[in-house]
Nucleic acid binder design. Structure first.
Lengths: 344, 344
DNA sequence: CTGAAAGCGCTTACAG
DNA sequence: CTGAAAGCGCTTACAG
């Protein structure tokens, strides 16, 4: 910048005004601007945004922490975030921080030392991380959760329509005539996962049916036992599409037919090539890119002015009926296969 | 930092030495260090890495430009890059810049203004972008290609074993007794894609068989025509797994059986839940995370000292035989289903 | 053993 | 209409 000034015969302050397109308001003549601009081009001048950020206190970059990039569930959210960020002139720093294995808090510190303007994360379960979130919020760091939330952390969150979605998925199976319906999943103590289980429980309760919860373990023995029992459920809702796939895999492996012997509903509807699966999966569809876009919009608000408020935005979900849940014996032509549930 | 110095009763220079863990070599007493450190903690001091980078000229961040995050092909590469980067203390800036729609050159400029230490991209086809790559290399910007390469751009590249992989895929079908084998894909003028076609061509030539190339178009009519013709190929190799899926979808839709009526080999083997597909896809497996890790290692070398050399690293590929290509009529027990091909 | 001084590459009032 | 000066938050020789 100094060298450009020298070459153009002006001060580096003038160069700065030209480069930042503030020459109009700063009263630089068109002629000076053109000369400086041309010389900057010729010298392959590349302004140093780091320095600019040191001054302005803004980097126009946000960090996104993903538990994994291995399932498209999260990469879809990331795509939504990145697209919305770009629309607003922000760059996205994507970090994969695996649950339990890597330390989210130290990754966040590292990101903050690089002065990202805000953070998004799919929040961690343990108290240590929750305390860290509270500390950050106390420091005024703009933070937004996606995928899950915590009632005890005063931070906005954008999540799926978990309870309503799972309720609708369960209702669908009940509507198909199933009475013994299992819930297959971890039911780990993440609020949004608990919401899903609650949706299942309520739907069952509303129809005076008994919930059957099959917990996932490291191996598949528990599920295998349930599937081979004589009084096995005739249908399952699942915590995520991946769990549904696992269930279908096991069932087929045991010689059971899906959906004839076991009907299955997925959750999330984020699987690729789903129509080409041995059993195309019926699932509660969640618009994950939209989740990302909304989360970014909320973060932009937080960057302007941290709300420090616990405010959860739910994304309505929609049942997508394919083959894995079977059909209503009383199927009528023209029956809707998609229905929107949940509040916006 | 100044305020910490004040609180600790030392100069900010001393604080700097403590924070950067250079107090030992700079001759700060343990006592002073501890006091400064404690006060920094208490004040929630977060060093500003931007300023540090202005001085050192290094940000310890690299940029990765992906044509899309929509297929796991690229997210797997990104994961490999990010993992290797993290191992070396680097952050990764992931940008999705869609081919043809968005401007890669301006995205690169923006990244460079933020002073990333190096760049990785799956290079673009057009001459304008190639000229841009040459310009950047001329400026000494560390740049590494992954997925593809250009002979006329003096830049290291890490790519698949495209030619050898496709040759092996074709040979496999020939070994199964097929004589009329089609190649289904774009054959756009990207070197690595041309390499794939070349691998196919050579395998056919070696067995004195005539190549049959089916070009992809916007719609599926071309392929449909070929599949319904009386003299249709009995087998296909494909440019990518996604193309293979499309082919299988169409074939099944036309009432053809896969592999009985049409055998299909994919390329890349990056599909999720492949065992659960209606026809589990046989494919030439490419270790995409490894591609990412290698690309990052090469970039690290370039950052140390730009080579400005055109040097292509091929990743050996391995045939993974599932159901879509059918079985050898002369199948023997104990037959290997995986074979490694290509140089390292 | 520690600090004063110069400087990284810029921005921002303010003076002329 | 433009530049000299101070400063952003740090690092780095160098002096004492």
């Amino acid at each position: 910048m100094v060298s450009i000034g020298k070459a153009a015969g002006v001060s580096h302050a003038t160069v700065s005004k030209v480069i930042n397109d503030r020459w109009r308001e700063k009263g630089i003549t068109q002629e000076t601007r053109d000369r400086v601009w041309r010389i900057a081009q010729e010298m392959n001048y590349r302004p140093n945004r780091l320095v600019r950020s040191v001054f302005t206190g803004r980097t126009f970059s946000v960090a996104v922490i993903l538990p994994t990039m291995r399932i498209s569930y999260f990469t879809k959210v990331a795509m939504g975030i990145a697209a919305e960020a770009k629309r607003h002139g922000y760059h996205t720093l994507l970090s994969q921080v695996e649950q339990g294995i890597e330390d989210e808090a130290s990754e966040i510190e590292s990101l903050l030392e690089r002065r990202v303007d805000g953070l998004m994360t799919s929040p961690r379960f343990d108290e240590a991380n929750r305390a860290n979130y509270r500390r950050l919020i106390g420091q005024g760091v703009p933070l937004v959760f996606f995928d899950s939330y915590y009632p005890d952390v005063p931070c906005p969150a954008v999540v799926g329509g978990d309870e309503a979605g799972m309720r609708a998925a369960t209702e669908h199976l009940i509507g198909l005539g199933h009475r013994k319906i299992g819930y297959y999943g971890d039911v780990i103590a993440l609020p949004h996962i608990l919401d899903r289980f609650e949706g299942y429980r309520r739907a069952m309760e509303a129809h005076r049916l008994a919930p059957v919860h099959v917990k996932m373990t490291g191996n598949d023995d528990g599920l295998r036992g349930v599937l081979t029992a004589t009084n096995r459920p005739t249908a399952f809702v699942t915590e995520m599409d991946d769990d549904a796939m696992n269930l279908v895999r096991l069932a087929l492996g045991l010689g059971l037919r899906v959906p004839e012997d076991v009907a299955v509903m997925g959750f999330g509807d984020y699987l690729e090539n789903v129509e080409m699966l041995r059993v195309p999966l019926s699932s509660a569809h969640l618009d994950l890119e939209r989740m990302g876009r909304l989360a970014m919009q909320v973060l932009l608000r937080e960057i302007k002015k941290p709300s420090k408020r616990h405010e959860v935005t739910h994304i309505p979900m929609e049942m997508v009926i394919r083959e894995s849940c079977g059909m209503n014996t009383a199927k009528r032509p023209g029956r809707r296969t998609r229905e929107i549930v949940g509040k916006s």
